[in-house]
Amino acid sequence: MAERVRVKALTPPGHVRAPWYLRGREGVVERSLGNFHNPEQLAYGLPAETKPLYRVRFTMAELWGPAAENPTDTLDAELYGHWLEKARTHAA
């Protein structure tokens, strides 16, 4: 069973690659992509650690609620492990 995750609802300043519209939203890991250098350090010219990167799939219903065009359409995004936590809910 695919792992359910939640994007941390954080709002730091500065350069990050976790889109605002996904923060606090839950999805399932579509695939693991391996380790990549952390852009939050690279962006400032710093030596960067590697972080695991995942493709996470969200339903449009999860992202937009009743305003979704079609609730079962999906949105996939790449998110670094440090932006993800265990989901609070379980898949139906």
């Binding site: 889109p19 992509l33 990549f36 079609n70 359409d73 949105l75 996939d76 790449e78």
Partner: peptide, 15 residues
Amino acid sequence: PANTTVRVHDSTADM
């Protein structure tokens, strides 16, 4: 058509 699933991919990182 409504019965086609749309999958949007946001290129947020290295892919």
